[in-house]
Write a protein that binds this DNA or RNA. Structure first.
Lengths: 235, 235
DNA sequence: CCCAATTTGTTCGTATGTATC
DNA sequence: AGATACATACGAACAAATTGG
């Protein structure tokens, strides 16, 4: 079926033949056809709807699904904080530098809005957890503004993973307010520098920021085992 | 089913209940159960075998499958050579530097063996294509030696993608022997430096190497659209 | 608001293929 | 070589969801 769809040159939104037609075309029973459709659906390549005008439709794989499927792989690998931050330290400064002086006022506004969410020092562990997740959202948002789809995916994937880890393994305990606030200060300086014209300055700030966050996270926990999402959240 | 497996604390190799038992446990018909199994199988989380002693088994997602599933996502994104090399330039020097002075004699030998495969200048386009693929294998092999599973996966995934692209879009034409040989020279210097003790030297060599390869590839082609693998190769 | 048509979703019973003992 | 225990496939019927009249 996948081959047939590609030969046909189908685009996202195009409808595949109905189950009945597929049964004829491939000379197979309904159950078999449906299993094949499920396989494609699990990969995020098609979606199916019931009712008239319904059917199976070619679908561009969403970032969420791609991330979830890749997350399944790392569920079985043992990633340490060091592993993750080795990548962040390499990628994030590069991404930010490439955005220097290229952000629109609206984009700057969006970033400022996220920053404002954790301007006040956290008093409870719950607040601090939320602030850490927000601070990862800052990076995800920045990545979204990058023109590079590969870079964008990688940074958002890694940020999501860290976010899950932080919540599930309670890495936000014990409280460490002065270190988190220093992280926020980095992001504020970064936002300033992004509106300037010096990519090297941006790179340096983010490099320091990452090194700082790395040191902090390493103190909280060494080993890390992410969980994969249940099926309903994966849809 | 996924939830049940996790609650049960199943490990790779563990057997799930037979279809008949699953039908009972979830009060569903065979067809429905089988569709569910197909979904898990497509994600690479289980494998099923026929015959006595057969059944459905928990399986660690393989790197190949994870890469293929992620490749589906980028099939719909338009990645340029610039996009890919922005990542390579950030990641590869970092990876190599972290390996400085940590490679065993056997590992050095393996890398030398790959290098030897393209010691002679290519005379035909076919030879040059093969050399380029081999040179990407050098990077994949190096990544395999990294202790960081995330870094390893990313570099190998990107190398595979580039390899596919080079073959499918014939980026190895027209012939450019002097530039390819300079690439080989970089790798030889790199191998030397890796046995030393100076990570900065390693980093610098690889950074130059990437910049050089980037410039070359950009000349060959700007836009890039990878293909995803047919189902049988994905298994 | 309901009815009818269309399409996927689910069930049951049965038969076949395949690997192990 | 044959029995057994599995997954795999088929076919007919019914249920649920969605759309348009």
């Amino acid at each position: 079926m996948k081959l047939w769809v590609m030969e046909e040159g189908c685009q996202p939104g195009d409808r595949l033949p109905s189950e009945a037609e597929l049964m004829e075309r491939f000379s197979m029973a309904k159950g078999t056809i449906r299993e094949a459709i499920r396989i494609l659906e699990a990969q995020g390549l098609v979606r199916s709807r019931t009712g008239p005008g319904g059917g199976v439709f070619v679908h561009r794989v969403s970032e969420e699904r791609a991330a979830a499927l890749l997350g399944n792989y790392f569920y079985f690998q043992h990633l340490s904080i060091d592993d993750i931050y080795q990548i962040r330290e390499a990628l994030e400064p590069e991404m930010a530098a490439s955005l220097t002086g290229r952000l629109s006022p609206e984009q700057i506004g969006q970033l400022e809005a996220v920053l404002a969410g954790y301007a006040v020092p956290a008093r409870t562990a719950e607040e601090e957890r939320q602030q850490h997740v927000d601070s990862l959202r800052f990076h995800a948002l920045l990545a979204e503004m990058s023109g590079n789809p590969l870079l964008r995916f990688l940074i958002r994937f890694i940020a999501n993973m860290l976010s899950q880890i932080t919540v599930q393994r309670r890495l936000y305990e014990p409280l460490n307010p002065e270190l988190w606030s220093s992280g926020m200060a980095y992001q504020a300086r970064l936002l300033e520098a992004l509106q300037g014209e010096d990519p090297e300055e941006v790179r340096r700030i983010l490099r320091e920021h990452m090194a700082n966050a790395h040191r902090l996270m390493r103190l909280q926990e060494a080993a890390v085992t992410p969980r994969f999402l249940p099926e309903d959240q994966l849809l």
